[in-house]
Design a protein around this nucleic acid. Structure first.
Ligand SMILES: [Mn+2]
Ligand SMILES: [Mn+2]
Ligand SMILES: [Mn+2]
Ligand SMILES: [Mn+2]
Lengths: 216, 216
DNA sequence: TTATTTTTTTAGACTTGCCTAAAATTATAA
DNA sequence: TTATAATTTTAGGCAAGTCTAAAAAAATAA
């Protein structure tokens, strides 16, 4: 149906569309580590296939069809990540690169059986919601720790940064999905956040607090 | 390391090498449903990478390195087939196409964990041996039913034809891996074989008998 | 052994996806 | 509002992998 390159572009456009209605050529190029001119070429092809809306110099958005395709790729990516962590016991920072390859395995039946095999998980190892087989996805109302008020308590439910180094740091600090934390104080000077977790206190930087998402 | 196309060529050459020392351009073209001229191009590239021995008009053979790479692809293919049947409950005739894609997932650690997850299986759903992580593979001494003498008994342990239609036919007849059969008689006229299995008699054609492999 | 057929390689071309450099357009600043 | 800067597109090109048609080599037949 769609080539590997096309799938990667659609997923990138989907991701960028979460924080912008119209995605720019340069944003896509940065996301995919490619050049703006390559993006222009590909976006034209995707527009010909009616997967994106595109007018030159105006940026790109997914069509309804394009969004469905993108959600399907996201579904595959996240289900494979879940499999790698839950069944093959990889750590949450180890799975993304493998899932980048596995998300392109095309069989729908395969992915639906994988879903069933794992008991229809709703979230991937990083807390991101897994779209169902019809492309429905739960928009989770999570907040970065950095913006909640002092004395608020919540459960770590997602991360805003998926890099290996960040995930490894969180794991080392035991700041993992499902942990309950209470924001005790935000220091005015540099926005350092003082947390309480497991009856112990710990401090995290503004940068880290920005990338830990909690459900209140 | 190697591209998807290169991997497919190496696997094809490996397969053809099981029944010929030097594989011809046309044989590879037929196996991969491509043209002889394309094969010549690719075989040159593989020779440059020291994965095959090649001299024009002389055919192709795998180098030691090339064989190791090929065995690794075969390992991945067969482990994924085993996963699809044993964990996701696909039928043995449904898994080959999916495994054709999955065999190209590159992580060695992934495949080793998958191997462990399934308890280090030694054979794929079609009875073919699975190479271990060092590329060691057991050459199985199986015989087609068509060449054994009357009153021989053996266990179905492999198939010589992996097409969907053949596998479906075998399943319908309950002629599956692990079943014990006794060859009662081979009719001289058209080489029809009369078998006994589960205390019942059944007849199979010479063609079918040729493609059922038994261990005696 | 020479002629014919088959196999394999070469030549030239096409598509996909990518690149650099230059031109066009849009955004920002003076 | 005009000049400058940033973004985006166009133009031209390259590598991988494929194809068709023609040439070369090898195998087979007369
Ligand atoms: Mn991921
Ligand atoms: Mn994820
Ligand atoms: Mn197979
Ligand atoms: Mn098999």
């Amino acid at each position: 149906m769609n080539t590997l390159a096309e799938e990667n572009y659609l997923k990138a456009i989907y991701k960028l569309s979460l924080t912008a209605r119209n995605v720019s050529t340069n944003q896509i190029a940065a996301e995919l580590a490619t050049k703006a001119s390559s993006v222009t070429d590909m976006v034209r092809k995707l527009a010909d296939k009616a997967l994106v809306n595109y007018a030159r110099y105006q940026g790109v958005s997914l069509t309804k069809t394009g969004e469905k395709v993108a959600l399907n790729i996201v579904r595959r990516h996240r289900l494979w990540e879940h499999f790698l962590v839950e069944k093959l016991h990889f750590k949450w920072h180890e799975v993304h690169e493998m899932a980048e390859e596995m998300e392109h395995i095309s069989s729908t039946e395969l992915i639906n059986r994988l879903d069933a095999f794992m008991g229809y998980p709703t979230r991937d190892p990083h807390g991101d919601p897994i779209p169902d087989c019809d492309g429905n996805i739960k928009a989770s109302a999570l907040k970065p720790i950095s913006i909640v008020k002092a004395n608020t308590s919540g459960v770590i439910s997602g991360v805003g940064d998926h890099t290996t180094s960040f995930l490894q740091y969180l794991e080392q600090q035991k700041l993992t999905i499902g942990k309950r934390v209470t924001i005790k104080e935000i220091i005015g000077y540099d926005n350092t956040v003082i947390l309480e977790m497991d009856n112990k206190q710990l401090q995290i930087s503004r940068e880290v607090a920005n990338n830990i998402l909690i459900a209140i």
